[in-house]
Design a protein around this nucleic acid. Sequence first.
DNA 1: CAATGTTCGCGAACAATGTTCGTCCCAGAG
DNA 2: CTCTGGGACGAACATTGTTCGCGAACATTG
Lengths: 222, 222
Amino acid sequence: MTRRRRPAKAPLSRAAIIEATLTLISAQGTRAVTLRAVAAALETGPASLYAYFANRDDLLYAALDAVYERCPLPPAGLGGDWRVALAASLSGTIDALASYPGLGSVALGTVQLGPGAMRISEHLLMLMQLGGVPDETAVLALDLFALFVAASAVEHSAPMRAVGAGARRRQDLAQQVSQAYAEAAPERYPRLHALSGKLPDADEPARSRFAINTLINGITLA
Amino acid sequence: MTRRRRPAKAPLSRAAIIEATLTLISAQGTRAVTLRAVAAALETGPASLYAYFANRDDLLYAALDAVYERCPLPPAGLGGDWRVALAASLSGTIDALASYPGLGSVALGTVQLGPGAMRISEHLLMLMQLGGVPDETAVLALDLFALFVAASAVEHSAPMRAVGAGARRRQDLAQQVSQAYAEAAPERYPRLHALSGKLPDADEPARSRFAINTLINGITLA
DNA sequence: CAATGTTCGCGAACAATGTTCGTCCCAGAG
DNA sequence: CTCTGGGACGAACATTGTTCGCGAACATTG
């Protein structure tokens, strides 16, 4: 039995580390994933990871790009309309990313230029060009889509939490919002107050559809 | 000199702690702000903060709502059009929040129901009602605006960083993106590759305007 | 082949952070 | 006056990202 145990386990690699990281993120969320946990999953020590990644952020960016590399992108012909295909692409990307709670937040404040991210950009650009969106608009739209996808994935990956004076842990979110509006001072928040009994019962898919349609409709008018 | 030093400094309060927190966030960014730093700024120890806030997240939510409470919301008559006023409200909120780097990310995954957040919701709702946006649409738009504002503020609060194989620290961002596209394999990323020499020179205000207009145009078509 | 250089692997240690526990002090109520 | 509740806060704890130093393995050179 050698001291190094090298013959007894697979050698480390970037891919293996990324895979272990994604598995842990999927199970526990990004925030709770430590280098120690990743290393333990690979039967090694956290210092070993530094031979492959500069730091924790570096590892998370790589994990993010791996997800971008594998999310489903429907063909251009879907639904016979570029908008349908674009909506499905955005939706699919959000869903894929949302499988890794909190990972989308890693992207905020960054422009991702790894192969996976560019794969998505290329695809979205193709669809927009197919729809006659001018390049100047399409490029700006890529930025906006990137932001939206990352942030939406965060919000879809775990139940939303209500935060504030009216937040009650015993109710579901819609009830909490409704109650907060009902309790809001009518003279300060008259419209929210008036809305409290009439909040639409939109579920998450409907909200997502609305948001995506808003973006797609919006870029065609920009 | 008493052991407690109480006579020598102002008593703690939620407001004082929030203020100290915001000052530090403004200077160092959310991520770098520790409870120890906040406590030190108030000449106390980190454990003292727990009498006012459940934990660090709780403090950050309160700081976030304080910013929402103070961001400028232009009057409905601005520009003679509800859309102009809505755009300015979104823009102003993003700018105010962007003064506190990274604070927007605290909002992701949450529905903020504090007084500051509801103040903004009330205002945006008022503008949309003024513009004849149906309530069912307006409520969904509030969700989308909240997400967009929070994520945009994060991205506007510090220079964007390029991440990925082509990232070079010596260049500004636009150059990095352009170079990454130029170096991208033409057979895999033909459209990005073709765009590399033609990326529009849009600065940040133009990008922001595009994004906001996209949202506003989009909700009117939803 | 032996010596040397390089890289991977990783334990030990360090600095830092959020949080809890226990104690003290003060103000207010009974 | 006593008791109680709550604020203040030091000490300590558990944990985390990271660095340092060293051994082992492998590649290269003479």
